[in-house]
Computed example of a mutant assay.
Amino acid sequence: TSKVAIIDRSSRADADVDYLFAQVRVEQQVVDTSPNCGNMLAAVGPYAIERGLVQAQDPQTEVRIHNVNTGKLIIATVETPGGNVAYRGDTRIAGAPGSAAPVRLSFLDAAGARTGKLLPSGHAQETINGVPA
């Protein structure tokens, strides 16, 4: 009820669709486009195919997604046997009920999308409140 995916043909030549994620804070009447949501991102590929923004292939279709929030490119690989989006499948996510067809997401050059570098502090490991992380 509080997450929005805005999807359209891409403004970039290297992508099929633009995806803008927005978090709606209903108690404050605020729309925030600074965060991201992987669950919503997983739906972008099937949506783009269903809406005719991307032509389905058999048996899989790659959808190149420009994440407007980060400026990064993600490739969603969607199961499309016979040129139709498959929704039923055996893929499970721990903590989520049921199963479905997989949607594989490949994040191209995602390091530093929010911080400008792979390791924001410059260290591969730090201790935070006594816990190595």
Rank of each mutant, 00 (worst) to 15 (best):
V63L: 07
D32Q: 11
G45V: 10
D58L: 09
L41P: 05
V26K: 02
G45Y: 06
V44D: 03
Q29Y: 02
E62Q: 13
D32M: 12
G52D: 01
R25M: 08
G52T: 09
V31C: 11
A48V: 06
V44K: 12
Q57V: 00
Y47K: 13
D58T: 13
Q29C: 10
Q55L: 11
Q28P: 01
D32K: 13
R25D: 07
G45C: 03
L53I: 11
Q28Y: 06
P35R: 12
V44E: 05
M40R: 02
A48G: 08
V44P: 00
Q55G: 03
V31F: 00
S34G: 06
L41Y: 01
I49C: 03
Q55Y: 02
L41S: 14
N39W: 03
V54M: 04
A43M: 11
P46L: 05
N36M: 12
P59S: 08
Y47E: 03
Q57H: 13
D58I: 13
Q55F: 02
V54Q: 06
C37F: 06
Q28W: 01
N36C: 10
C37N: 03
I49L: 04
L53W: 08
V26A: 03
A56T: 10
A42W: 01
A43W: 01
E27Y: 04
R51P: 00
P46G: 07
L41M: 13
A43P: 00
P35E: 01
S34C: 09
M40C: 15
C37M: 07
P35V: 08
E62N: 12
L41D: 05
M40H: 00
V26Y: 03
M40F: 02
P35Q: 05
V63S: 14
E27S: 14
V54K: 09
Q55I: 10
T61F: 02
S34H: 03
P46R: 09
G52V: 09
A43N: 08
L41R: 04
T33Y: 05
L41C: 14
N39F: 03
G38R: 10
E50N: 15
I49A: 01
Q60K: 15
A42I: 11
V54I: 11
Q57I: 02
G38K: 14
E27C: 04
P59E: 01
D32C: 13
E50M: 14
N36E: 05
E50Y: 03
A43S: 15
A42Q: 01
P35K: 09
Q29N: 15
G52M: 10
A43I: 02
Q60S: 13
Q60D: 06
V44M: 07
G52S: 12
D32V: 11
A48W: 05
Y47N: 08
R25W: 10
D58M: 10
V30N: 04
G38H: 12
T33D: 00
P35Y: 02
L53A: 07
S34Q: 04
A56L: 03
